[in-house]
Computed example of a mutant assay.
Amino acid sequence: MTESTVAPPDAGSVAETYRQQTKLVAPAAGLGLPGAQLKWYDIHGTDQTIADEVRAEARTFLRAEADGAGLDFRNELGFVILHRCGESFHFLLVSTWRGNNELWETVYARDGGPFQPFPQPGTHRGTFCVWELAAVLHEQQAWIRYLRSGRDDTARHAYLADQYAGPVG
């Protein structure tokens, strides 16, 4: 016998006024930091871009975090997602592979000001949105290919070159 179930909310917690839009996932030049080599993805609406100065600010910020105590990389591979959400808000998601097959994440954001850690109170919190998951799904498959490879220098370069590009949503 199964546990009793409660009827789901009418819209499954989706606001009646919400309309899903298409966004673009675009790979950009990777970022080498002390202890990590990271792929880079920009995500933005089809009618938007990510300003070069915002991307440069994000890269400079991550270099400072890696040089300080903000990011403690351990000879890792991974990826960054810079996601423009609206006019001035940007998420900066840093993900690395640890423990062989685990994806670890650090979340930063900026809302017109500088990047800073994104507060995530509580135990049940957001991870990736539907647009970010396109890059994450690709990365999951790329990491599996890497794990099944000889994991030598050629395989590492192949992993770092393997990126997703295209519309989502």
Score class of each variant (00 low, 15 high):
residue 78 G to Y: 02
residue 1 M to W: 13
residue 68 G to R: 09
residue 25 V to D: 00
residue 29 A to L: 13
residue 120 Q to S: 12
residue 81 I to P: 00
residue 150 G to W: 06
residue 18 Y to C: 05
residue 138 H to I: 07
residue 102 E to D: 10
residue 87 E to V: 14
residue 11 A to V: 09
residue 65 E to L: 03
residue 30 G to N: 04
residue 31 L to M: 06
residue 67 D to N: 12
residue 108 Y to Q: 03
residue 124 H to G: 10
residue 123 T to P: 06
residue 21 Q to L: 15
residue 167 P to D: 11
residue 105 E to H: 13
residue 105 E to N: 14
residue 69 A to F: 10
residue 154 T to H: 14
residue 107 V to Q: 11
residue 122 G to C: 05
residue 29 A to N: 12
residue 134 A to T: 08
residue 14 V to L: 15
residue 121 P to D: 10
residue 39 K to Q: 05
residue 28 A to R: 15
residue 112 G to M: 08
residue 124 H to C: 11
residue 15 A to D: 13
residue 54 V to C: 05
residue 116 Q to V: 05
residue 31 L to F: 06
residue 1 M to N: 10
residue 51 A to Q: 15
residue 120 Q to K: 15
residue 130 V to T: 08
residue 163 Q to A: 15
residue 19 R to N: 08
residue 111 D to H: 15
residue 145 R to C: 09
residue 112 G to R: 11
residue 13 S to P: 03
residue 122 G to N: 03
residue 122 G to T: 02
residue 96 T to R: 05
residue 48 Q to E: 15
residue 94 V to M: 05
residue 118 F to G: 01
residue 145 R to Y: 04
residue 127 T to E: 10
residue 21 Q to N: 12
residue 2 T to P: 12
residue 38 L to C: 03
residue 41 Y to K: 02
residue 58 A to Y: 00
residue 159 Y to N: 03
residue 53 E to R: 13
residue 122 G to Y: 08
residue 67 D to F: 10
residue 145 R to M: 09
residue 38 L to K: 01
residue 158 A to M: 07
residue 158 A to F: 03
residue 55 R to Y: 04
